[in-house]
Design a protein around this nucleic acid. Structure first.
Lengths: 120, 120
DNA sequence: CAGATACGCAACCTACGGGTTGCACGTGGA
DNA sequence: TCCACGTGCAACCCGTAGGTTGCGTATCTG
């Protein structure tokens, strides 16, 4: 993954920082296990071991996924004694949605409306 | 040897429906090059070689990315003689947005409103 | 206090993603 | 007609994402 030399083609795109964040969010949500974890945590904040109990993978694997989600800013860690409980922080989702609405809004009526809804 | 959590896992992700599609979309959008390509195509339908000219990578690399996007249903191919021109088909974006609004809506006011906007 | 429990770190393995090059094929222009 | 150009396919290279096991440490509990 090289840098970003180039650049021409008058493009609007990149909101700079938001761009990086959006990438991290999409990357995090790209994995089915992570989507699953995220939605479970959204429904009920949990710890790594709890989540691992419901999945066919090890706790450490789950922990790695939680780190990805965390790095993308989608999760918040809360330590309670020896447990670490995770809960969702959906702001990054909004940013990702914004990106999609912005890019796709030129072509899709619904997305265009979304973009407006988000604007304010 | 203490190890091995789980073992029963009633896993069945069960978000059913557009779950697969959503995954493909997030996966496609996870890569910065692909986001770039997608947004350029959204602004102006183009061919692989055209797009490659604006990037530091080979045409074949671009072609692969376009296939990813295409597989995710985000692009539409239109053959014109020896050229193949791509244009965006944003419906999958809407589905992805729906997923996010649905999951994140429980926690975020803005996303909840989005979910409503999409409902109808 | 002793043992179980939950976490974090690190080493390791493997598959796959993103990139390259090379070449064959079809189409369009001079 | 002949050749240049755009595409598609395949082989190949390499880094890293996702998984494992092993182990050390902190905390809870009997």
């Amino acid at each position: 993954m090289p840098h970003e030399p180039n650049g021409h083609t008058a493009d609007q795109v990149s909101d700079g920082l938001a761009e990086d964040r959006a990438g991290a969010v999409f990357g995090a949500l790209a994995d089915p296990v992570r989507r699953r974890l995220f939605s479970e945590i959204a429904a009920h904040p949990s710890t790594a071991t709890e989540l691992a109990n419901g999945l066919p993978i090890s706790r450490q694997a789950v922990a790695k996924h939680l780190n990805s989600l965390s790095d993308a800013g989608l999760l918040e860690r809360e330590r309670a004694g020896r447990d670490v409980r995770y809960r969702v922080t959906p702001q990054p989702l909004s940013e990702a949605v914004s990106w999609m609405a912005e890019v796709g809004g030129q072509w899709d009526e619904r997305l265009a409306r979304l973009a407006q809804t988000l604007e304010r």
